[in-house]
Design a protein around this nucleic acid. Structure first.
Lengths: 195, 195
DNA sequence: GCTTATTACGAATGGGCGTTCATTTATTGA
DNA sequence: TCAATAAATGAACGCCCATTCGTAATAAGC
């Protein structure tokens, strides 16, 4: 039997675990499933991750850190609350569409995390939510936006935009940019801005 | 050992399975977990349901049927697109808050359903989405609403409103009615209506 | 009160689970 | 070149899984 010997086995494990977790859910995926997908024996995974739980924590934390960095990047230098809202919306939706699996497990598998990892993820998520919330608060303060409660609206908008991955298909009736435009318009109007 | 003998064991199984599935996910919950919660032996469940999968199908289909009936009820006799939109929004959000576990598993455990049950649920879900979509289409036709694409906006709004259960707590900063008002305003504004 | 249908128990089935480990093989650095 | 390290195998561990089944206890109909 030929042995696959490569430096990036760890990365391959990550990729396959992510895909499988996203498709079937953390608890429905076994270490054997992951090992099969990678093409190694189950035991070999433990050379790279101390446990199944650690794979999930790794995936979720990596995602949150990357997401935050990318978001801050996208917002940097954008001036004006309206522009900042549009920038955030476009960034968020694009990110969902680019990394649907990451987003899905970060959202869905919080309950599969043991306490330690969960708290870390919560902190990052709050940090991410704060970016949008601050834009909304600023807009309300200036009178640009009409929003009853910025914190509530933040969660409402994030849920709205995140939901896109549930139904969007690249080969569907509308293409990516058309759908993004629809959502951006909905976001803008929802804060009381008419085009 | 005392034996619990009651006609509504089946209903108790349903209740506990729902609660456990919502908390931990279908595949993370074992028949032993359910039996423990009910206070019977695992084997006894099979007097009421032919399999674990059938419990899930039962829960999801019952929910979808109830949801549809309640929605049609709530919309009956409501005239005018704006009123109908508000009625639907209020109904949908209230229903989420009243039955968060039902809603959660109907949304989350579609992937745990085998093909047969899944198709049935999809049909019901489409039927439900159609109620909102038709309101939006009507509003666009009359010029009451400003919406780029009614089908997209339907999914966007449903995702937004459904997301409320993720964070809302009855003992939180805002009470139920205040939160509903926030969401209704966001919904109305998102279709281009200013209060 | 007795028969019959329900519903429960409790033990067993075969199989899959996460994880461990002794061992072998490949790669790396001096 | 050769020891040291890293990464794989493959078999095993004990445990839990969904489900089955013979048997016992209960409830319902006559």
């Amino acid at each position: 039997m030929l042995q696959q010997r490569s430096k990036d086995t760890k990365e391959t494990i990550r990729l396959n675990a992510l895909r499988l977790f996203a498709k079937s859910g953390y608890s429905a995926v076994s270490m054997r499933d992951i090992a099969n997908a990678v093409g190694i024996q189950p035991g070999a995974i433990y050379n790279h991750f101390p446990s199944k739980q650690d794979i999930l924590v790794d995936l979720m934390m990596t995602h949150m850190v990357d997401l935050l960095a990318a978001a801050n990047d996208a917002m940097e230098g954008v001036e004006g609350t309206r522009n900042r809202l549009v920038a955030f919306a476009r960034f968020h939706i694009s990110y969902q569409l680019d990394f649907p699996d990451h987003v899905f497990i970060a959202y869905m598998e919080l309950r599969s995390l043991e306490e330690t990892g969960r708290q870390d993820v919560y902190v990052k998520r709050d940090e991410y939510e704060a970016i949008l919330r601050e834009v909304l608060e600023q807009g309300v303060k200036e009178g640009t936006f009409k929003v009853a409660n910025a914190a509530v609206q933040t969660r409402a908008l994030l849920a709205m935009m995140t939901g896109i991955t549930v139904w969007f298909r690249e080969d569907g009736e509308l293409n990516r940019d058309q759908v993004i435009d629809c959502y951006v318009q909905a976001v803008l109007q929802s804060v009381g801005i008419q085009e």
